[in-house]
Nucleic acid binder design. Structure first.
Length: 677
DNA sequence: AGAATCCTGCCAAGCTTA
DNA sequence: TAAGCTTGGCAGGATTCT
């Protein structure tokens, strides 16, 4: 059959064209399905691309949602990395950024960039020849330090055979060159309509003082086999993909904290297998912070390693300094319905790790040294458990002696004693949460986790309210359940439930408080000042801020009649001038109604006049018909007549027109602050 | 030191859903 | 229509900034 031939054709341009097209799409935000938040910038991208280019993203996207936040890389650097990912080029990056770029590349598992850190043999100069070999030398010492130079780094296609090693072709001084050629300005689109899921991390990456083995970083589909390659970074709590063994990680996080790693326990990386983190390290939540009503952003590492879920490496824990764990079924260790992932240093990508938030109370800080303890937890799956419902039982928790904390070092709240959990972890937890992870304080600094009931996962994903009372309506598609509210964990301390922000680990007694707080992370809503460019994550912040623009003085001292801008000032005035306690039983000040902007968009001013003023988004006041003409309640259809605030605000004489002062009667509320953590 | 901002428990009012 | 949820204001304190 001589007539039949096999013909092959290769489009040599295809890959580059494809990449270019993708880059263009990225530039237009087209088909972007992930938003990476770095510092204040949002980068839209395609998760497929990122995951194919970065081992970090590969793991991260196994569990993360559509929005991830990176805290270990600067926006400027990430932009370069992203440009590389979408263009295969690094063009004219300033050499003084090279170190950082390389480091970030390592952390993100972008092989090419990470390999730039392989020190050239000559050290200082940027050789134009191909570097080679996956040297294991320190990545932290990339040679170039000249801040005045820029370096163009390209990787000629002809170098394919070089196994991906970067080729630095030029080194020259071009300080003035703008590197915008390939820079794509990703629109900071506020895709609030996106089903945005926030994934954040507050843990600064640990320095990887040792080198990461560049040659092994690029594992698009990391497998356990690749894990060991990262061990070299262990001492530094290595960044990306550091898949050290559990023991290593624990040892790391426990015993070694890089100085710059404020507050944080290193995160344990998840196993490469998607959706199945082997290890979960839970740091002590910030319960103490909020419970102590003070949060200071202090660095410290609370020593807690509270829980480790480990898989297939049971033997590793033998050397643990802090925790011993037994393996637990890893199924759903990170529930896939949790789209909010606290992603820490890259190593923790796919874990549902809890990270010590940066703002750790001083108390927690100091206590660190003292609280460190071994904790032995074992997990058992109760027979009655539903699949996926893992109970954690404490077989032994070294009882910490709180008294030790009262030593000088110990902070206030520590001195006052930590609350020690007394509940039966498994049972109480089970009764309290169905939709989210639950932690229980199982020791003075140790919290436990219960994996969400798998059976509920279907609907649990959309279940906003995890409280058990959501009895009825199991319809998975309840409109009401629209939002994924996996923004918190529940922490049970002595039977009391606290809501722990999944991102920063702050604890809240009220879920609403947490929800409100969470916008600080997600920025799902923004509250811009109408007078300046500032934007606030909470409406109240904006309101208070705007007061400074308007100069409005709503707080009036009843004793002398002076008006002040806020409570603090009037309270201070009352204390200092009148030597009285403003928070006492008798009202010593009057709060006049807000004159400017505090009327909700959807509220009316309950005036009896024929028309009702309404504030629209811009703070403009309109009148709308009172009738049931359908327009009421909506501010979106601004009716004709515009009025001013003075039209609706009656500059009171002295009689409090607004008796309504929610604070009245609310000031006596007893804040049950759970012990003095 | 004072101002500005942030934090968090609580509340009330409006909105949504069953 | 009731219950649950969302939103935003308030108190009172803490923290950060100037």
């Amino acid at each position: 059959m001589e007539g039949k031939k096999l013909i092959s054709a290769t489009d040599t341009q295809y890959s580059s064209v494809l990449l270019q097209t993708l880059n263009e799409q990225r530039g237009h935000g087209l088909f972007c399905d992930v938003t990476v938040i770095v510092e204040d910038r949002k980068f839209r991208a395609h998760r497929n691309i990122l995951s194919a280019s970065s081992t970090y993203f590969h793991q991260l996207f196994s569990v993360a949602g559509q929005v991830v936040e990176l805290s270990f890389v600067r926006a400027e650097i990430f932009a370069e990395i992203l440009n590389y990912i979408y263009s295969s080029k690094i063009i004219s990056i300033r050499s003084d950024l090279l170190d950082e770029l390389i480091k970030s590349g390592q952390q993100l598992g972008v092989k090419f960039i990470a390999d730039l850190g392989v020190p050239p043999a000559e050290g200082k100069t940027m050789p134009s020849e191909v570097k080679d070999g996956a040297s294991e030398t320190s990545a932290s010492s990339p040679a170039q330090k000249d801040a005045e130079t820029q370096v163009s780094v390209i990787r000629p296609e002809s170098q394919e055979g070089m196994d991906g090693m970067p080729v630095i072709t030029q080194s020259f001084s071009l300080h003035g060159i703008e590197y915008e050629t390939t820079k794509i300005t990703v629109s900071d689109s506020d895709d609030e309509d996106d089903d945005v899921i926030f994934c954040s991390e507050i843990v600064p990456p640990k320095e990887c003082t040792k080198d990461t083995n560049a040659a092994t970083q690029n594992q698009p589909c990391p497998s356990p086999a690749g894990i060991s390659d990262q061990k070299s970074c262990g001492s530094g709590g290595s960044p990306h993909l550091a898949s050290t063994t559990a023991a290593q990680k624990l040892t790391l996080s426990a015993s070694r904290r890089s100085p710059n790693q404020s507050s944080v326990e290193s995160l344990v990386s998840a196993p490469p297998q998607h959706l199945t983190p082997n290890i979960i390290v839970l740091n002590k939540p910030q319960l103490n912070a909020s419970l102590n009503a003070s949060s200071s952003h202090q660095t410290h590492v609370t020593p807690m390693i509270n829980l480790v879920e480990e898989k297939e490496q049971p033997s590793n824990n033998g050397s643990l300094t802090e925790v011993e764990t037994t393996a637990v079924d890893d199924e759903e260790a990170v529930e896939d319905d949790v789209d909010i992932i606290g992603s820490s240093s890259p190593g923790s990508v796919s874990t549902s790790s809890l990270v010590q938030q940066p703002s750790i109370p001083k108390a927690a800080n100091t206590e660190g040294s003292g609280v460190q303890k071994k904790q032995v937890v074992t997990f058992s799956q109760e027979p009655s458990s539903k699949p996926g419902d893992f109970k954690i039982k404490i077989s032994d928790v070294l009882s910490g002696n709180n008294k030790e904390f009262s030593s000088g070092i110990a902070s206030k709240h520590v001195a006052e004693g930590q609350k020690i959990i007394t509940l039966d972890t498994a049972t109480e937890i089970e009764s309290l949460s169905t939709g989210c992870k639950v932690y229980a304080n199982i020791g003075e600094d140790t919290y436990d986790i219960v994996i969400p009931v798998k059976g509920d996962s279907e609907e649990g994903e959309a279940k906003p309210d995890e409280t058990p009372r959501t009895s009825g309506g199991d319809s998975p598609n309840k409109k009401r359940m629209k939002v994924k509210h996996d923004d918190h964990y529940e922490l049970i301390v002595d039977g009391r439930v606290y809501y722990i922000c999944i991102v920063c680990k702050r604890s809240y007694a009220c879920l609403t408080s947490l929800r409100r707080h969470f916008n600080v992370h997600s920025w799902e809503k923004k509250y811009p000042c109408r007078y300046c460019d500032k934007v606030f994550p909470l409406a109240e912040y904006r309101t208070k801020h705007e007061i400074h623009h308007t100069g409005e003085r709503r707080y009036q001292c009843l004793t002398c009649g002076k008006s002040f801008i806020n409570y603090q000032v009037v309270a201070s005035h009352i204390r200092s001038v009148h030597s009285q306690d403003p928070s006492g039983d008798t009202k010593l000040y009057r709060l006049h109604p807000c004159r400017s902007l505090q009327i909700r968009q959807y509220t009316y001013i309950s005036d009896h006049s024929s028309s009702i003023p309404v504030i629209n988004q811009g703070g403009i006041v309109y009148r709308v018909g009172t009738g049931k003409d359908g327009t009421e309640g909506t501010t979106s259809n601004p009716p004709a007549k515009q009025i001013t605030w003075d039209d609706i605000f009656i500059p009171q004489g002295n009689e409090a027109i607004f008796k309504q002062n929610p604070s009245e009667g609310s000031t006596e509320f007893e804040f049950v602050i759970p012990e003095s953590y």
